[in-house]
Amino acid sequence: MADKKIIVYSAEWCPWCHKAIDFFKAKKIPFEVRDVGADQKYAAEVQQVSGQTGIPVVVIDKDVIIGFNQPAIKKALGLP
C-alpha cells in the first residue's frame, strides 16, 4: 500500500471531496490533492482520466474511482 500513488481530484466547496480527503488523512495515507476549482488544467485532466465531469475522483495507481466510494477505495488499497 505504501508504494501506491494516490491522487484526489477535488474542489474546496465539494463536500464529498472533503470526505475523501478526510478518509486518507484519518488513515495517515499519503496522497496528492489536485484542485479542479483552482486550476483549470486539473479540471481538464480529471475529465480525461475519468471520462466524466464529476468529483471527487480518486486515482490509486491505475484504479480510477469516481465519487467517494469507500469500498472501492479500500479494495484498491487492499484494506479490510
Binding site: A11, C14, P15, C17, V36, G37, A43, G54
Partner: peptide
C-alpha cells in the same frame, strides 16, 4: 450535485 460538479 451543483456544489460538486458546477465547477466544470
Amino acid at each position: 450535485c451543483a456544489l460538486c460538479d458546477g465547477v466544470f
